[in-house]
Design a protein around this nucleic acid. Structure first.
Lengths: 243, 243
DNA sequence: TATTTTATAGTACTCTTTACCATATCTTCA
DNA sequence: TGAAGATATGGTAAAGAGTACTATAAAATA
């Protein structure tokens, strides 16, 4: 049998002892974004155990030996929010040697978007420790979670420009002003109102409803709904969402 | 001590037996792209051992217990090409339960770009089995490597539009026609020659050299060089490369 | 009914992209 | 030596997209 040194590498060797290579833990961590009409927020938990007791952390868990990474993330999200079918996207894998005190743990980071109104913390789960934080208010975090969050925010800001995922953060029905304000806070910029309208409406991705805004102290705006099917159809014909 | 069922989850529990969770292998796989002036190519190896004996595969290896993922990828690339400092970007992590016959292995996929002229296969390494394949010519591959390759190609095509990484695939000195042809084959489109020139040159990212193309049976074109420092400076001022 | 506030429509201007043409320059071959 | 062929390079006009701004409409409130 070959020794470790004489082999080309562990992966392609004939009959190596692979035991030391199968000693990793894998976790998933999911940065959950929401939007309450004013601020972009992120769902953080306060750790109740060591290490990093009391620190803020991104929800996550170790992946079970017979569990898919996506399945694990959905499990975490379900335990946390009670919701299924949340927008989910893999972000980056953090695999530094010393990133976790318990041992060698590589974490697959995801980020997800949800309508903040759909979220009801479930009392039976760890979600009792969970809360929405404005993204500016995040301080020190457990492990390398601050780094993970920064990557997630950066990805979200890039994503939101070339894919119509902003709607995942809004209620089913929204005004054009709602949409504009979301983009403005998300991207930290200002848009001209009239031009924003034009740009969005000419994309033909919104269904104008026969409903108006209510309980508002001025002329109510029309409500719209995102047309996911139409976006799919347009995408296949080469349409590309932009800003 | 808590049991598995009573805990919130493995990650946050107090004193659980985490042994079964630390049983994963982690590998890295790297899709290496090159360009020979005509075709976009990818570096594949022919597997010399089971499983998937004889199949084409993407170069990769198991990550060592005390090794960073990026370090592992650089090691694989160095063993394969003899090169350091190759453009490297993390792509996606594939963590399906049954993707590897040897056990539970999650693989962190990377893709990298190199100047094909710099590559000299090293006889002492597994690179003797490595060869450049035109990306259209890829057939069945070992494991889920075809899926990994598809993701890498898709990412490359997207990346090349908003970041000036095409130059990683060209020699230090190149003509505008070279650059245009690279983009055309990479993106599978056609550009107007005059307009392509204008667009690229107005970005002010290329250094015009006092050299001309040689050994060519027509009017020789000027050679250019990518100005990485200038790109860095412009980026900080908010410049955004596009197409 | 007047006033306030925001939604919505429209318009003129600028800048960018696109399609295309003209000329320059080099090689090759008669 | 000079014409032919091929590609590089420079330029221009039309179309289109983006921008800044103005005007009008509609609802709520006092």
């Amino acid at each position: 049998m070959q020794t470790l040194n004489s082999r080309k590498n562990a992966y392609t060797s004939d009959h190596p002892d692979l035991t030391p290579f199968f000693s990793f833990g894998i976790s998933v961590d999911c940065v959950v974004f929401g939007y309450d009409g004013v601020d972009v927020k992120v769902l953080v938990i306060e750790r109740g155990t060591e290490p990093y007791l009391g620190y803020q952390a991104i929800p996550g868990d170790l992946v079970h030996p017979q569990e898919d990474a996506v399945t694990a993330t959905q499990r975490v999200l379900r335990d946390l929010t009670g919701l299924e079918n949340i927008y989910l996207e893999q972000l980056y894998t953090f695999a530094g040697v010393d990133r976790h005190p318990l041992g060698r743990v590589a974490t697959i980071a995801y980020f997800s978007l949800l309508k903040i109104g759909d979220y009801n913390p479930r009392p039976s789960s760890w979600a009792t420790d969970a809360q929405w934080m404005p993204i500016q208010a995040l301080g020190e975090m457990a492990f390398d979670h601050k780094e993970i969050f920064d990557a997630a925010l950066q990805r979200l800001q890039a994503r939101v420009r070339n894919q119509p995922i902003g709607f995942e953060l809004l209620p089913e029905e929204f005004t054009l002003a709602d949409l504009q304000h979301l983009y403005e806070t998300l991207l930290n910029t200002q848009f001209d109102k009239a031009n924003f309208r034009k740009k969005i409406l000419t994309m033909d991705l919104l269904i104008p409803l026969d409903k108006m805004q209510k309980a508002v102290r001025h002329r109510p705006a029309r409500l719209y709904q995102f047309d996911a099917l139409r976006y799919e159809a347009l995408s296949k014909r080469g349409f590309h969402f932009e800003l």
